[in-house]
Computed example of a mutant assay.
Amino acid sequence: MMITALVLLLQSGPAGQPECDQEASDQGIQQEMNICAAAEYREADAALNAQWAVTSARMKERDEGWKPDWDRRPGHFTTLLESQRAWLRYRDAHCRLDGYYARGGSLEPLLVSTCKTGLTILRTEQLKELAERGP
């Protein structure tokens, strides 16, 4: 038992996550497919977080020059933050539901991770477009 735990720890990737064995994943070994899908999601999430930093900074810049008396709506950053929080709730719930196709089975984590990766990549592009738009 102790040796197994040590081997797993030594094979772990960032933050104690197991590393993806792409060859085993390509052979259809479910556990490896799950591990690789989770690693892909972590990469997509890291890219999302990097783009978030850029886009949120851009929205804060836009807020600095926008203070008309006639417009009492929330600013760019506040609206971006609200939308991001709503999107995170949507993504997590939608992908949980997508995983229910294999609810309780070994395929469920793969379905959830794959769903989260796809939606996260799309959201990263949306954030990039927001940052690049006009004034």
Rank of each mutant, 00 (worst) to 15 (best):
S106I: 07
R42I: 10
K116S: 06
L119N: 02
A131I: 07
E108C: 06
L81R: 08
H76A: 14
V7E: 10
G105L: 03
Q126A: 15
Q17W: 12
P18D: 00
D98S: 11
T114Q: 09
I3S: 11
G134K: 11
R123F: 02
Q126M: 14
L88F: 05
T120N: 04
L6W: 12
H94Y: 07
M1N: 14
G16A: 00
G65S: 13
A37E: 00
F77R: 03
A46C: 06
W70C: 09
P109S: 02
A47K: 09
Y101I: 14
W70Q: 09
Q51G: 05
N34H: 06
D26E: 04
G28Y: 05
L80F: 02
W87L: 04
W70M: 13
C20F: 02
G134A: 14
S106G: 04
Q17I: 03
A57S: 08
L80W: 03
L9Q: 11
W87E: 06
W70R: 08
C36A: 04
D26L: 02
A15M: 11
Y101G: 15
G105D: 07
S12E: 06
K67E: 12
I35Q: 08
D92T: 03
L8E: 13
E64L: 13
F77N: 04
E132C: 04
L9C: 12
A15Y: 05
S113P: 04
A24V: 00
R91P: 00
A50T: 14
L127M: 04
G105I: 05
S56V: 08
P68M: 05
E64H: 07
Q51D: 06
P18N: 00
P135E: 15
A57K: 11
L127C: 03
L10W: 05
R73M: 08
I121D: 06
Q22W: 12
K60Y: 13
L122D: 15
M33E: 03
Q31C: 09
A50D: 14
R73E: 10
G99Y: 01
E43L: 15
P18V: 01
Y100S: 12
E23M: 12
A57P: 07
K128L: 09
A39W: 00
P135V: 14
A93Y: 09
D26C: 04
S56R: 13
S25G: 02
